[in-house]
Design a binder for these strands. Structure first.
Lengths: 228, 228
DNA sequence: ACCGTCAGGTTAACGGTGTCAACCTGAGCG
DNA sequence: CGCTCAGGTTGACACCGTTAACCTGACGGT
């Protein structure tokens, strides 16, 4: 059980082992309460205070775990970019929600924890940058307008809302998971596309409904394969 | 400091005092870590294990606090219902986000905590029911279609995503708060209105952009006062 | 070949937490 | 008056994050 002491100059390798141990604990226990300094150290085969050789406190360890998760999310986005922009954004969005639902504990500590250190961490900025890229690409085709960062934040909000609500309140009357993902992605996309085009003061409800009906009917006439 | 012992048959009044103490602690400290059984008991002028006379464990106390918050949210919805449905839904949505941002700690323990007990708590169901009502009213005017509960869940997801992201990740490049609220509410509304009207397979991006442009131009011609 | 240094840990302890078993106490009844 | 039992209190336990003090053995210098 006891880990063999690292050789000189290789002390930093314990840091990685601690992080891996922490991720394993999270994944296995399914609760962040299982993420104890004592448990992490024990799993790494090391005494508890040894954690403090590489992390200032527990918060620093958790934040390091979060950076790893941000890295995974960023990689996920990068792999889904490319090709026709509108479907690419759809793929990114779907991948995001699926990641969140497949790794609920990691996602929870990532997003639902009061960020102690101020400023956007680099790994998070990179992941967010990829999402901004996806949105920017959509703008070049003309289907979405506005400030890319702002639109990306709005889309992120929608995705995060769906994912985190499903994770935190599983007992709500959720519809089928894939259907909901589909719905959220399309609602966010359509809404964003329309937002910048509509005037600030809208016509009364009946008028509005009629216009939406007209657009729907018109679009139903032509068919294609671009499905965000 | 010491609370006078309750008279016979009025032991339940300590329960309310404990809940109030817990809410005060949460609001004053601004961190859920301040919600300690010892601190709650001390503020209520009572010894720590006295909490166990009314709550099975700490989790039960926290859940009871959540029920109070759900109640406030439900009341907020109820007060904003009525009148023209589309603007009413907008008011509800704005009130929701403002409540979340004005009570970040309470909102965090409400929504970002793994719900221990299974099933939807009654207070939550009531609050959600009000939102379903708002959506249903919008459907009767014809501006939104689909299953009311499902649409309400989608709207809730959007609101929650915006609120919780702003709370949990304040260091992101957020735009002006009111502008963002406005954006999210309208995006969710427009997106939902369009979702059920558009075919599953969409035309290519340029075609899509042209149609959206046309709708925007057409709506810009008429002006009204209905602004969700 | 020896030795001192210091990176890479360990042991022991402290204060704070949730929780439980055991004990107390005094208001209200007969 | 005396009994009872609702409404608490005391004391203790295991576990948590965190710190100070100590150990140890691989390496560079001689």
């Amino acid at each position: 059980m006891r880990r063999v002491r690292a050789r000189r100059g290789e002390g930093a390798q314990l840091r990685e082992e601690l992080l891996s141990a922490a991720e394993e604990l999270l994944a296995e226990a399914g609760t962040e309460e299982a993420l104890t300094l004592r448990a992490v150290a024990a799993r790494a085969g090391v005494s508890t205070p040894a954690v403090y050789l590489h992390f200032a406190d527990k918060e620093a360890l958790v934040e390091a775990v979060c950076m790893r998760v941000w890295g995974e999310l960023g990689r996920l986005f990068r792999d889904n970019l490319g090709g026709d922009p509108w479907p690419a954004m759809g793929r990114c969005a779907r991948a995001y929600i699926r990641f969140a639902l497949d790794h609920p504990v990691q996602y929870r500590v990532l997003m639902m924890r009061p960020s102690a250190s101020p400023g956007v961490p680099p790994a998070a900025a990179e992941a967010f940058g990829h999402m901004v890229d996806a949105v920017s690409a959509c703008m070049e085709t003309g289907v979405v307008e506005g400030d890319p960062a702002e639109v990306a934040l709005g889309l992120w909000s929608a995705l995060h809302g769906c994912a985190s609500l499903m994770i935190a309140q599983p007992s709500f009357p959720w519809p089928d998971r894939e259907a909901l993902i589909d719905r959220v992605v399309r609602v966010a996309g359509f809404g964003t596309a329309l937002y910048s085009r509509l005037p600030r003061d809208l016509p009364p409800s009946e008028e509005l409904a009629a216009r939406f009906d007209a657009l729907g009917a018109e679009l139903a006439a032509g068919e294609g394969q671009s499905s965000p």
